[in-house]
Amino acid sequence: MSTKLVVAGVAAAATVILASASLFTVSQTQQALVVQLGEPKRTIQEPGLHAKIPFVQNVVFLDARVLDVDPPVEQVILADQKRLEVDAFARYRIKDPLKFYQSVGNEMVAEQRLAATVNSSLRRVLGSATLLNVLSKERVKVMSDIKAQVNLEAAGFGVEIVDVRIRRADLPEATSQAVYERMRSEREREAREARAQGNEQAQQIRSRAERERTVILAEAQRDSQVLRGEGDNQAIRILAESAGKNPDFYAFYRSLDAYRAAMKGENTQMVLSPDSDFFRYFNGTGTVTRR
């Protein structure tokens, strides 16, 4: 009885081992390649439970999802001789597992080959583009051309390029410093020109204002001389008319002018006889006849 149990146990174990060696599962994120003695026999891209010849065939699992490739930063010379340090990345999918296995073998080698392909395509396409193309709306066409070239070469690896993007495109440090210095020199030159133009305009405004000031002062002096002459003329005419009408009043007015001129200072001293004719209007000897 015990012998039968042992035989049954051995048979069950053999069955389990045989089943585990014959059956395998492909998940939704995978695709598989059945290989017999190093030679691919069939491709499985549908998820589920599948069978193979035990101990003779083995299964190579490949990723069915979109994978990333991140090549190193590449320095590219553009058509206008500008240098750019381009940091790009790509997305790819294994489309033909058999061709992929035969050409590159595994995903690590595929990423290395694709990184080199992406950088070489970047150099070719950007080599015929200018910096303005990279920075303007034409960048979409540039990226489309890069993707087309990478896809053309990647087809030999059994993969499909989903997308290629430039993450960053900068001028090299030395070039950036030179561009910065050139921009600063240009701005300083424009500032000097603006200051020179401002000084020139300020000088023109000052000259025009000084000329207008001189003209205004000359006209004012002319007008004042005219008015003063007219006033003096009227004063002389009035005095002449007064002298003709009342000679005593004219003599009195002339004496007042003489007093004003003689006693102009604050400490004026005069030594005269009290009955001097100069002060006749102070001692009552001089009279003015009213008319």
Rank of each mutant, 00 (worst) to 15 (best):
D277P: 09
K137T: 10
F89H: 13
L5F: 11
L114Q: 05
A209V: 12
A32N: 06
R165C: 04
L171G: 09
E210A: 14
Q30S: 10
R113D: 08
D68F: 09
M108A: 12
Q57K: 02
F55I: 00
V73G: 03
L114W: 11
S128Y: 07
N106T: 01
R167Y: 06
F279I: 14
R168T: 12
D87H: 14
V69R: 05
D257M: 14
F100V: 02
R139L: 10
A88I: 03
L23N: 04
Q28W: 10
R291V: 11
P47L: 06
F278S: 07
V6Q: 14
Q149C: 08
R206A: 14
A12P: 06
A79R: 15
S255W: 13
V34E: 10
E160Y: 11
G158R: 01
P40H: 08
M108P: 03
A174Y: 03
L84E: 00
A202I: 01
D223Q: 14
L33M: 08
S120T: 13
I236P: 08
S276K: 02
G198N: 10
A262R: 15
L98W: 08
T214W: 12
V26F: 09
V86I: 13
V125W: 07
T268Y: 08
L49H: 00
A19W: 14
E138I: 03
V10N: 01
P71M: 05
E153V: 11
D80T: 11
L135E: 15
A220S: 05
R65H: 01
T29R: 13
V26A: 07
R237Y: 10
I44E: 04
R228G: 00
Q204F: 01
F249L: 14
E85K: 06
K82L: 07
E186C: 02
V159E: 06
V125H: 06
Q204A: 14
E107P: 00
L131T: 06
Q221K: 14
R65F: 02
A14W: 14
P71A: 10
N151Y: 03
Q203M: 10
T175V: 15
Y92W: 15
G198W: 12
